[in-house]
Amino acid sequence: MTGRRDRLRGRIESLRLVAAGVVGLAVFALAWEALVRILDVRPFVLRAPSKIVPEIFDDPRFFLDHTLTTGRHALVGILIALVCALVIGAVLATSRFLEHASQPVLTLILVTPWVAYINSVVIWLDSGTPPVLFMVAFVSFPAFTFGTVAGLRSADPSARELLASVEASRLEVLWRLRLPSALPSLFTAARFNIGLGLAAAYFTEGAALSPAGLGWVGRRAIAFNNGDLLWAAILCTAVLGVIGLTLVTLLERLLLGWHVSQR
């Protein structure tokens, strides 16, 4: 009886939080609309929501296709980065020397303004999907690697000794202890990489000369001085980011129910 009441209370609390988010977004949209109208902002600088939303609904298929393309680019690129980071991070976590040797390189990738060398990557990998995937994976890789190394190292030393006392293999320790210990920091990196990966996908699509993705739509809007189209592409990218973060949050709740951050 108490359990059912607690679950009901939990659901009401969740609904209350969702409602609070919706109210926050509505207030933001209203303030945005009012600001554009009152200050009479030029179309290319900022469009009001009342102009952007109809632009999308004029040709929903067009925006859906390009949104799905950008979403696919970001997802695949981020997954490639995650797999590479897990493999390389697992190697780096075995040696302090290797970890320190890799730090400057990873930091350099992280802090270098990647927008500046997108065109070089496009020339190198040609137009189309490859440079987009490369850029998304490349910029997402350092955060995942840092997260992997820190997470693998954070495994409880007593639990490591315990497994050592029965001669568990390296692979068993990795799978049963170190990887689950790394999950919290990997989720933190994933949140960071959603925004970064989407931005990389958007800018590289714009530079990759292939007619696909919201970045290409945005680039075309700039070329044709079309403010409504540009801001519609920006809004679709933002929606993709929100969907990505929501999925990460749901996955986190599913996999990290045991972690202190989820209680």
């Binding site: 409880d156 007593s158 000794e161 315990l162 050592a164 006392s165 029965v166 001669e167 689950p180």
Partner: peptide, 19 residues
Amino acid sequence: ARATKVIGLVPQTPALLPW
């Protein structure tokens, strides 16, 4: 002895895996 799992160790902290 470790390799043949002859030893049962109880460490200072319970060292339970939280997941």
